[in-house]
Design a protein around this nucleic acid. Sequence first.
DNA 1: CGTTCGGTTGAGCTTTGTCAAACCGCGTGG
DNA 2: CCACGCGGTTTGACAAAGCTCAACCGAACG
Lengths: 246, 246
Amino acid sequence: MSGSCIVGQFSHYAALSDDEIKLLESLEKNERRISAKSVIRDIGKPTNNFFTLKSGWAIAEQNLPDGQRQIIDVFLPGQILGLREIAYQSGLCTYSTLTDAVLCPFPKTDITKLFEQSKRLTDLFFLILAREQATLTERVINLGRRSATEKIAHFLLELQVRLKITNQELQNSFRLPMTQRAIGDTLGMTSVHVSRSMAYLKAERLVRKRGGVIELLDDAALREMAGFNLAYLQMDVSWLRGAASG
Amino acid sequence: MSGSCIVGQFSHYAALSDDEIKLLESLEKNERRISAKSVIRDIGKPTNNFFTLKSGWAIAEQNLPDGQRQIIDVFLPGQILGLREIAYQSGLCTYSTLTDAVLCPFPKTDITKLFEQSKRLTDLFFLILAREQATLTERVINLGRRSATEKIAHFLLELQVRLKITNQELQNSFRLPMTQRAIGDTLGMTSVHVSRSMAYLKAERLVRKRGGVIELLDDAALREMAGFNLAYLQMDVSWLRGAASG
DNA sequence: CGTTCGGTTGAGCTTTGTCAAACCGCGTGG
DNA sequence: CCACGCGGTTTGACAAAGCTCAACCGAACG
């Protein structure tokens, strides 16, 4: 994993050469510590920087005129914040932290430089964008066509799988640093209804919660009920250009 | 617009050189005529090909085990189908036509070749992916946090703006080749409720429908009610590499 | 020890879904 | 030219899912 979280993320998809690793690490030379529930970048602000998320959880959200909000994306350590706005001058959403976090801001122009220097990394960024899109797609299905409990089940399963990507030894339980309000804003429902649906899942002995830690007690049953298919989290890397040297 | 629809789409974002145009046109050397309501590529099939949509409308959809379906994306002429699965071996959704259409299939490997030959086009594809993502994001907000009539209003406005991108002289009315069932499957509601919501919009004199043609009678009011902000459809192109020669 | 924040619970209400019938426009075949 | 059937839309009565509001609880924290 080295000092760099983003290398950890990328090296899951392809073995990286030393040069590539150096390039990626150069994106993380500036560290910024930031406390829970604070805004990283507000909507409408210039998109001059991206941020890698070294530790902690973050979200992309959008607040609607009537006071509601929709959480668009939940970011886990190793992900890059802001990529989605690479083609926009001002941010389309607000980025904020859920927990205390360590972020590494780097200028947008660094990406172009990186593209110049490594085709392989260019492709990897392409791949990241495609994966984000697949996750969003799955969220669309979740929002459009699933009941409240199914939504929650699906969301929990997705988080579990995504956490396992960077943390192999993860078991069936993990810290979930989101309030029920936040879960509701992600899944398009009220916190009250999140509470009730969670209660149902607990009653059915499908999940358990203690402290901030959630435990998935019956993976198979959860997948069944949520119609969870992890294909969208499993990428193919064979089309990447260039061989890795290390 | 030349013979190529995709060039039309791209040249909106940046002036292209002759070489670049030639490269893009080479993606469209094979034409395939396909009738309305047929499957272009089923879910799970290998993603060896992309398709440019030369004419007609198409969708990406996913059918759920319980018989419901969610339409993930609606494609208009000039768009590329399948890009979202560039990083996946098998398709995550089914592509089908809404109307009679002309498609140009081209192999995935052509994209890599194209990336080799033009940095600028590489960036343009990046941009396309980012735009698709922004559209998906907006659909997430639509599904998560808007009422039935707001959803429909927003959807119609989005289509209008997107159609105007390739068809400048488009007025406030356009052919909408979607059944209410299809609209419902896009917006996460039943066809019955689509009907009722449309009736409401008509009664409020916000839209009118005759034949397959829909007319937006009061743009401002529709935007107000739907919370429509077209920022997500307006990209910034200044970060693209390389100058255009013509 | 009081306050705040997140979670839970209950009662009543609103929005949307379900089911079924009727309707409408349109193309087909007689 | 008409009758028919078909796909899509509209309408109505009713059911269900989810929302609102409000009270309450418990843990964390100053």
